[in-house]
Design a protein around this nucleic acid. Structure first.
Length: 578
DNA sequence: GCCGTTTTCGGCCCGACTGTTTTCAGTCG
């Protein structure tokens, strides 16, 4: 993940928003948006490219290339700074609320001088929106609901955003002299879907050099607190990061303590008490004498309590301790177990990279197989046709012959229509190796309709995987309201797998839903839904989510050898229907 | 602003839904 690509993408997206808010040329805004997306998804660090290299990125022309150079040289883009000065940052934040776009955000600012979410709430409570043209009672309700949804995230950020920062901090601190170990702990290590703040641990004899370096990092914007054992900072992006430096001898105890979860740690400490021991972040001690038993490694602490080492993703007090005592902890799925990705896109629809680049990147990851699943025609904006799909299949077959060691599957991501129908009739679907089917619209149907709709998709013999089953967007949109137990039962009955979509905004199904689905005997596909080469790396979040739901290699169809996967796909086609 | 030419301009993903309006603008995927 390259820092400058992301920063520049964010900046260009901001400019696109500002153009939209100020009523500028909509096509120009769109051009900046497209460039932002292309740069965010570009596999090469733009800081290493010259003007010519920059313009080779799709949707980046002379003007935007110049602005990127300007940013790389001066750290800002004058034009964007200028527009920023005329529109308060809060106005743009309003656009993050569902139901509010640039036009309504601008109306709120110009007519009511609202320039923050809090200000908007106040205006609503004072009933000042009532007189505003284009704002009615329903809009008001939608806005309130949207704000509630945003605030429920409670300032927590996406797993991926936290991971990027943590990876960077760990890399920076690991280079310092005297660093025995350095890693992240907390909910990030447990791979929770959202993260409150980031905990970084260092094992070293002397803490001062680390605390000093931490405060001096280029992305440290503010030092919240600093001492010998703990320093807290806020990054330039507003994230809180805590650093704790432990003596190497306390590493295991500290790591165990700061990884949590709180509920898990309470259980473990209760066990310690029953063993007449006492567990703290400094180690495991004899309760009476206070003599240290062990503290250096997590494994030793768990072992002394009669437990195997418990993977962090399981430490949620969901039965992991009882299972550990019975020696029945699952052999969790790991990223190494994944043999292929079954849901990916190319630039034939809304992906960024051409087929050849996606395939080359997949081969680089060491996959044994890889499915290309571009959108089907019912998602009208993607302009798919039978001819385009068949032509792509020819290219896939040809590439497959060239690639030794990785088999290419030709698939599609079908759209599940309002009645549960999909884009193509059986005879056309039969030509695909694998079909993913997903809901992309009509989220507000009744519970019965949504349930029937999903079940009908499962019953289509050619549908092998239900993509992002709840369609939630974390912090933005709740999942659809269907009777998912009925859907899971249908999946089990028809041999249809459920997706664990690894996109950090989706993580869909989430851990709790996977646990429920598994009880119905369903199999899963852990996919990235990649729309660019860097997106392929989202597999780590899909696997993390799968781990949190106790999934093993046997539960996950794309962890199987190709032969077993093909058998699953074949049997699904035979046993679905009615 | 980008792109691809019918090569220096003219088109740019397109349709549905929703709420507000009184015939359509704004938002979304």
């Amino acid at each position: 993940m390259t820092r400058s690509n992301e920063d520049i993408a964010a900046l260009l997206q901001e400019y696109a928003d500002l153009i939209a808010i100020t009523g500028g040329d909509a096509f120009k805004a769109r051009a900046y948006e497209k460039a932002a997306r292309a740069i965010g998804g570009h596999p090469v660090d733009v800081a290493t490219l010259d003007a010519k290299g920059l313009q080779e990125i799709p949707n980046v022309g002379r003007s935007i290339a110049d602005k990127i150079r300007e940013y790389l040289e001066t750290g800002q883009i004058a034009l964007i700074e200028e527009v920023r000065a005329s529109i308060p940052a809060g106005v743009r934040e309003l656009m993050a609320i569902p139901a509010l776009g640039p036009k309504k955000a601008l109306a709120l600012y110009q007519e009511l001088e609202v320039s923050s979410v809090d200000g908007l709430l106040e205006a609503i409570h004072q009933e000042r929106l009532r007189d505003l043209r284009g704002f009615g009672q329903k809009t008001e309700e939608k806005i309130l609901h949207g704000i509630e949804l945003m605030q429920k995230a409670g300032g927590r950020i996406l797993l991926s955003a936290a991971m990027d920062v943590a990876d960077q901090v760990v890399a920076d601190l690991s280079t310092l002299d005297g660093c025995v170990a350095c890693t992240y702990a907390g909910s990030l290590r447990r791979m929770r879907e959202t993260i409150g703040d980031i905990d970084i641990l260092v094992a070293a004899e002397h803490s001062t050099p680390f605390m000093d370096a931490f405060r001096e990092l280029p992305y440290t914007a503010e030092v919240i607190a600093h001492g010998a054992k703990k320093t807290s900072i806020r990054t330039t992006k507003g994230l809180q990061v805590d650093l704790r430096v432990l003596p190497p001898d306390s590493w295991g105890a500290g790591l165990q303590y700061f990884t949590g979860s709180k509920a898990h740690n309470i259980r473990v400490r209760e066990m310690a008490v029953r063993h007449r021991l006492k567990l703290s972040e400094y180690g495991l001690f004899h309760a009476k004498s206070g003599r240290k038993v062990t503290s250096r490694r997590e494994e030793d602490i768990y072992a002394r309590l009669g437990l195997p080492w418990i993977p962090p993703t399981l430490r949620e007090d969901r039965g992991e301790i009882a299972a550990g005592l019975r020696d029945e902890l699952p052999e969790l799925l790991t990223e190494r177990d994944i043999r292929g990705d079954l849901h990916t896109h190319t630039d034939l629809t809304d992906g960024l990279a051409p087929l050849e680049e996606m395939v080359a990147a997949a081969a680089q990851r060491g996959y044994a197989y890889y499915a290309v699943t571009d959108h089907a025609p019912d998602l009208v904006m993607q302009r798919m046709t039978d001819e385009k799909m068949l032509a792509q299949r020819e290219r896939v077959r040809e590439l497959d012959r060239k690639h030794r060691g990785m088999r290419l599957l030709h698939g599609t991501e079908l759209n599940i229509g309002p009645e549960g129908e999909v884009d193509w009739p059986a005879e056309f679907l039969a030509g695909f190796d694998v079909c993913v089917a997903s809901v992309h619209s009509h989220f507000t149907q009744s519970r019965d309709q949504l349930t029937r709709r999903l079940i009908r998709a499962c019953e289509n013999p050619y549908v092998a995987v239900i993509g992002h089953p709840t369609t939630r967007r974390i912090g933005k949109r709740p999942g659809i309201d269907a009777d998912f137990d009925a859907v899971y039962a249908a999946c089990a009955r028809t041999g249809t797998a459920l997706e664990v979509n690894g996109h950090p905004e989706r993580l869909d199904l989430g851990d709790e839903e996977i646990l429920r689905a598994k009880r119905h005997g369903v199999k899963f596909a852990v996919d990235t839904d990649a729309h660019s080469v860097p997106d392929l790396a989202h597999m780590r979040y899909g696997v993390g989510t799968a781990q949190r739901a106790w999934l093993t290699e046997d539960d996950v169809i794309n962890a199987w050898p190709l032969q077993r996967l093909r058998r699953f796909l074949r049997e699904g086609r035979e046993c679905s229907g009615g």
